[in-house]
Amino acid sequence: MVPAIQISQVHKRFGAVHALRGIDLEIQQGQFFALLGPNGAGKTTLINILAGLSRADTGAICVMGFDVTKQYRQARRAVGVVPQELVFDPFFTVREALRFQSGYFGLAKNDQWIDEIIHHLDLGEKANTNMRALSGGMKRRVLVAQALVHKPQVIVLDEPTAGVDVSLRQGLWQFIRKLNEEGHTIVLTTHYLDEAEALCKQIAMLKQGIIVALDTTANLLNRFSGRSLTLRLEPAQLPESLHRLLTHQEKELFTLSIADFSELEKVMVELRLAKVQILEMELNQPDLEEVFVKIMSKQ
């Protein structure tokens, strides 16, 4: 099976700014993939090149096996992009915008699918409203809808939930999840790391135009962020044997880092032997935010 997206040795400069410094990345079909990185890392630049909105200085990108410049027709049919900027054409109503977008892709009779998108994105009430009169969140939904009019196999969302309220976020992800289950490849960028952690199976982290981490979400969480255990003890004293696990202490609160659940067992035994009583206990799950901060501060 050809990869959904294949990026090889992509460089892009804007004057003195070396925005992308040799990106290599392969995303398989059916993936739910997160592209993470701080502002200015080059995420949007990479997406723009992939979408044909910009050109790489060197290197190549293929979408579903089609080169985005040499075979742009097939490549653009295969990809739907939700841009980061909240752009719209004030000339159209929601439905007109979707019809014209279909038309640009050469799809004349697309009303059934358009209706379906309108329904899933909860745009029904606003279908005949002019784009100008929509709130920011609504405009964002229309952008998502526009990216989907041609049923692209690969869907790229550049910060789709920035400035969007919680209920819309949930609705949006539900729909995108459904599309992913139906076989569409999803690539998203977001600053909400909990979102990426919950949705995406694979993650690439970008920093100053370089990919600094690329792995499954599970591996990243395990590798960079072990679980930790916070205990309140009586007496407030940690047995000698557990000091090697201690990462943080605040009065009678001790935070221990544990690799897995079998270590939890050992901690309990040591405490019982030392006749220390546990007044409170909290097991902290690894989280992507911690991983992200660690990776970004490493280089």
């Binding site: 979408a51 044909g52 027709r73 653009r76 752009v87 004030p90 526009q146």
Partner: peptide, 14 residues
């Protein structure tokens, strides 16, 4: 200027 030119740059229009 409004940025909506992307709507005609994204489709496969030569």
């Amino acid at each position: 200027i409004t940025g909506n030119i992307i709507f005609i740059l994204l489709p496969p229009i030569s």
